[in-house]
Design a protein around this nucleic acid. Structure first.
Length: 1040
RNA sequence: GGGCGGUUAGCUCAGCGGUAGAGCACUACGUUGACAUCGUAGUGGCCACUGGUUCGAUCCCAGUACCGCCCA
């Protein structure tokens, strides 16, 4: 059955993928040799809401190459697939879906119902990317597909897994070790999703902003001499001021200022350090005063050199405030609107003023310094109002604006507020796209500084290798400057934090065991009821299960006065419910005096863990930890992680830290970092630019193999691939090329079993006698060695280039052509055997990069016991290279090319067959001519070589060891022929002069490598010979 | 501002101590036992610039310019 003219990728890929899947070809350990070492790769889990983009295509192609290569070599191979649950993204997708379906918004659902809705969505749509990866040919063990939320409470059938157990266990473990803590810190707050996010989820973008300049009057009308000097210390400005000038891009935050800071070296403000100044906003009769302090943070050269400190709304200010004991006044709510809760402005301002005078005012969370008329406003509206008010009051710094009236020529001078248009860096949520607000909230943190060192050491001492090495610097830099990691998220979709809180009854305000008798009387109980509960502090415990946490709370309350110490621990929804339940319980007791009714209510933290916290456990979590599974023992630590550089700190560093902290070992031996796929012009692909290339479109248009080959050939270490459809098309042509070479072989009976005997499957390594066959076997061996070397060094592009050059440049361009005449002669059988073997070896070597077309060719060219996915990777090497055959065939190729070139340049019609006259030849040349006459005649389109002399009407061809004359008719263009020869001779002479110069340099001969000198001498000798031949031909031409 | 890359043929990129390669594009010819998604032959490069190391630099080092990315 003849093969089709081209490979039908669309039809074949689906069929082949189904066959792989049906035979469990990708299962862990498939095709492993007995006792083989393990090779394991974890997929960087794509987002469950994700769909395949070109970055995934590159990432997974490279993983697949490594995995298929190892599997064929008989390693015990696992490629572990899965997805992460992507807290914010998934919640967003489902909220959008509900809105589209006209269903209520999330806040109108209860938590369980909403997460059920997410699970339903996941069952319907969560497998998208898996199916897309299969189209790419990814040979993951899909039966082991993992999910970072598997096994969570509420997970439906089919999502049993135990990832949840691993996550909770690690949290509790780190908590018990004191590596996780809760604290009120400034975090990045996403006002759209109303959750904290980590600094890595923030994207800083430069936007157009404004810088306002305002005057903060000194308290009590104090004045000072403000002196500015130039670089030489000469005074450029001296004036008496009663204010300090402040620049800000966010005037609305002035309401929360706690101080004004100047640099200790700044002489301009030295006279007023320690004094108080007034914030020029808020009701005039309740203006707040704040201290002028010194700190290293302000840059004296920037703006006025004085910085307002709003510790609750800016990360730099937060640092200053912490260093100097400045209170942090929160101004905004979770939606980034001006607060409406807490104390009145008057009460708040009074407290803040006391604080400014140095009094300890304690917790200021109820202090709301937003004036009543601004409460509830959006932050931008508040900004506008603040600016207007200050300007109206004349406290904006102004510049003199001069205007000439065009008609009268009259000059108008006007003071206008100084507002600079300025590019400012603004933080945006990478998911929500809204401006991130630094927000003071209670969050959970991993104390990364305490677990970071093992992760640094592991890379320093080489237990884990990062390639290309330049990325190690990024890794070290990030880890050496690591910040605490905010791991709590105010979401519903995720692993709920396993921490429960209870009211602290040990020392609630207003409660006292007055008699000190260790028991509560009615009076004391009422005091507790009336005053103690609402303001009580909290205690918390972490444990995997409520039962364990209840145990901890029981220990906790054991020290309480009786009868409270025997309260039953019960779980309630939240703090308010706990207060109610405890109050009811106490009230009941005062009536019944029955202590068995007493309860101690606790409630669970409503927040969930950052998705990356669970993704950080991907290496052990996917292998069954905390169970001690055979997979964990066999495949951990994993061999290689393939990932993009954008994720080094997001994920790689965290996995390193967490695995080392939890199981004491590195998660992977090698991290290979690839680039970011860009468009043809090198621009980052983005939806807004509209230059996104969809890998599935490319697969539809050209097939998966060409896309894979293209991405591979561009995966040069440390470089970003730039991809366009042109490249994929070129490699589709490569697929067609090898397809047609196979088709040619098939048409010539290469795959037919020799008469009377069954074909060995796969083809045995042949032992041919003909030079052509011996030569190509050496080329196959070279290709195999080069591919293994390249893949072993993660030089994917080199592997692709080697294979392209070998298959197209050697097999198709030369071997197939050489073989044509051999099919008729004495070497027909061995040529068929050799060609069959060559094609089998070619598709074997190509299979990791182009699995579909190679599998198809494999199936079409024999009765196969095993699919190519489980084919044997070859091990032969240099022993197959026959130096004589190599030399001879390269000489033949050189001759054919020289003849073709001469013919083309002299305008000989391509179809014309010329006589080939040997005017001079040494023994080697004569032998090569004799052995390969048929090939030369055919490919150079000449008659069998005969000895003779150059004559009028011949053109000359010179090769090492021989000269030829080719009669091209009665008249030749002598000028053209001599120009052609002269050009070649001149180039030769130039090159020879260079080489001679080098060899003539005594220092070169002294210091260069002997091999290099020998090579140079040989090259020069060849060149000299060629020049001599060309010159001889020129002389003859001139003589005729 | 700090860090990391890049600058090689018209374009996209390899190469990285011994005077340059591929694909695409371009030119001419061509249906020669598979392939026009092809073949043959060509055109095209002071390897950004300036110094240095070296017998020798596209390659190593330093600096300059421009471009990109990351972090402030």
């Amino acid at each position: 059955m003849p093969m089709d003219k081209t490979f039908d990728a669309a039809a074949a890929e689906a069929r082949i993928a189904a066959a792989w899947e049906a035979s469990d070809a990708f299962a862990a350990g498939a095709n492993a040799k007995p006792g083989a070492p393990a090779f394991s790769v974890l997929i960087p889990p794509p987002n469950v809401t994700g769909s395949l983009h070109i970055g995934h295509a590159l990432n997974n192609t490279l993983q697949d190459i490594l995995v298929r290569w190892h599997r064929m070599r008989g390693f015990d191979t696992l490629w572990q697939p899965g997805q992460d649950h992507a807290g914010i993204a998934t919640q967003m997708v489902v909220e959008r879906k509900l809105a589209a379906e006209g269903k209520p918004a999330r806040k109108d659902w209860d938590r369980k119902a909403f997460t059920d809705e997410i699970w339903t969505w996941k069952a319907e749509s969560g497998g998208t990317i898996t199916e897309q990866l299969k189209r790419l040919g990814a040979s993951c063990d899909w039966s082991r597909n993992a999910f970072t939320m598997s096994g969570a409470p509420g997970a439906p059938a089919g999502e049993e897994g135990n990832f949840h157990d691993a996550v909770i266990r690690v949290f509790v473990d780190l908590y018990d070790k004191g590596l996780i803590y809760r604290g009120k810190r400034l975090v990045n707050w996403d006002p759209r999703f109303e959750t904290a996010i980590s600094d890595l989820e923030v994207e800083n973008r430069e936007v157009d902003g404004h810088m306002w300049h305002f005057k903060y009057p000194l308290a009590g009308g104090a004045t000072y001499e403000y002196v500015e000097r130039d670089a030489d210390g000469r005074i450029t400005l001296r004036e008496t001021r009663d204010y300090i000038s402040i620049a800000t891009t966010r005037p609305e935050t002035m309401l929360g200022d706690g101080a004004v800071a100047v640099h200790p070296s700044d002489a301009r403000y030295a006279p007023i350090v320690g004094q108080l100044c007034e914030i020029p906003v808020g009701p005039c009769d309740q203006r707040r005063l704040i201290p002028i302090i010194i700190d290293e943070y302000p840059d004296p050269g920037f703006g006025s050199g004085a910085v307002k400190i709003t510790g609750a709304h800016d990360f730099n200010d937060y640092g200053v405030a912490m260093r100097n004991g400045i209170p942090l006044y929160a101004l905004m709510d979770g939606r980034a609107r001006m607060r409406e809760d807490g104390l009145s402005y008057a009460e708040s301002a009074a407290i803040a003023t006391r604080a400014a005078r140095g009094e300890d005012v304690g917790d200021v969370s109820a202090v709301n310094l937003v004036p009543e008329d601004l409460r509830g406003l959006d932050r931008l509206d508040a900004r506008r109002r603040v600016v207007e008010a200050i300007t109206a009051e004349g406290l904006a710094v102004t510049v003199l604006h001069r205007e000439i009236e065009p008609e009268t020529g009259a000059e108008h001078l006007e003071n206008r507020p100084l507002v600079e248009a300025k590019k400012i860096m603004q933080p945006f949520g990478d998911r929500s796209g809204v401006v991130i607000e630094p927000m003071l909230t209670d969050q959970w943190f991993v104390d990364t500084a305490r677990i970071v060192q093992p992760a640094i050491d592991a890379v320093r001492d080489g237990r884990t290798r990062i390639l290309p090495e330049q990325h190690e610097k990024v890794y070290f830099h990030w880890l050496e400057n690591i910040e605490p990691w905010t791991i709590s998220r105010q979401l519903w979709w995720g692993h709920q934090i396993p921490v429960w809180y209870g009211l602290d009854l040990h020392s609630p305000p207003g409660f006292a065991d007055d008699e000190g008798d260790g028991a509560l009387d009615a009076v004391e109980l009422f005091a507790l009821l009336a005053e103690g509960l609402v303001d009580a502090g909290e205690r918390h415990h972490a444990a995997a299960h409520f039962a364990d946490v209840a145990e901890a709370f029981r220990d906790d309350i054991a020290g309480l006065p009786q009868p409270l110490e025997i309260s039953r621990i019960v779980e309630v929804a939240d703090r308010a419910a706990a207060v109610d339940a405890l109050a009811a319980s106490l009230a009941d007791y005062t009536l019944t005096q029955d202590p068995t009714h007493l309860v101690y209510p606790v409630w669970r933290d409503p927040d969930v863990l950052d998705t990356w916290f669970s993704s950080g456990l991907w290496p052990i979590g996917t292998l069954g930890w905390p169970e001690d599974t055979p997979e964990l023992r066999k495949y951990f630590p994993t061999s290689t992680l393939v990932t993009g550089f954008d994720i080094i700190f997001f994920w790689v560093a965290r996995m390193m830290m967490m695995q080392l902290a939890v199981v004491g070992d590195v998660p992977f031996r090698t991290v290979y970092v690839h680039g970011l796929v860009r468009d043809e012009k090198g621009a980052k692909m983005s939806k807004s630019k509209g230059n996104v290339i969809d890998p599935l479109d490319l697969i539809d248009a050209y097939g998966a193999d060409p896309l894979r080959f293209t991405l591979t050939s561009m995966a040069a270490m440390g470089r970003d691939p730039k991809l366009g459809p042109k490249h994929v098309e070129a490699n589709r042509n490569f697929v067609t090329k090898i397809w047609n070479a196979t088709r040619f072989a098939e048409m010539n009976g290469v795959f037919a079993a020799p008469a009377g005997q069954p074909a060995a499957q796969p083809a045995a390594q042949p032992a041919p006698t003909h030079t052509v066959n011996r030569w190509i076997m050496g080329e196959v061996a070279r290709a195999r060695l080069a591919v293994d070397e390249a893949l072993g060094a993660y030089r994917f592009n080199e592997a692709a280039a080697v294979l392209y050059g070998f298959v197209w440049g050697k097999v198709c361009d030369w071997y197939v052509e050489f073989a044509k005449p051999l099919f008729d002669g004495a070497h027909a059988d061995e040529t068929r055997q050799t060609m069959r073997w060559v094609i089998e070896q070619s598709v074997t070597l190509l299979h990791p990069i182009m699995p579909f077309v190679t599998e198809e060719i494999w199936a079409l060219t024999g009765q196969r016991a095993r699919m190519l996915v489980h084919g044997d990777w070859p091990a032969y090497g240099a022993e197959l290279i026959d130096a004589d055959a190599d030399r001879q065939m390269n000489w033949v190729i050189g001759l054919i090319e020289a003849v073709r070139s001469a013919r083309a340049q002299m305008g000989v019609p391509a179809g014309a067959r010329l006589d080939l006259i040997v005017t001079e030849a040494d023994d080697a040349a004569r032998a090569a001519l004799a052995a390969n006459g048929a090939l030369i005649e055919r490919l150079a389109r000449v008659t069998p070589p005969v000895s003779g002399a150059a004559a009028a009407g011949t053109i000359a061809v010179a090769v090492p060891g021989a000269s030829f004359a080719l009669p091209i008719g009665d008249v030749i263009d002598v000028a053209a022929e001599s120009a052609r020869l002269k050009k070649a001779a001149d180039k030769g002479a130039r090159d020879a002069a260079g080489l001679r110069g080098r060899l003539g340099n005594a220092r070169f001969v002294e210091s260069a490598d002997p091999e290099v000198i020998e090579d140079t001498r040989a090259k020069l000798a060849d060149l000299d010979e060629e020049i001599a031949r060309l010159n001889a031909a020129l002389a003859q031409l001139a003589a005729m």
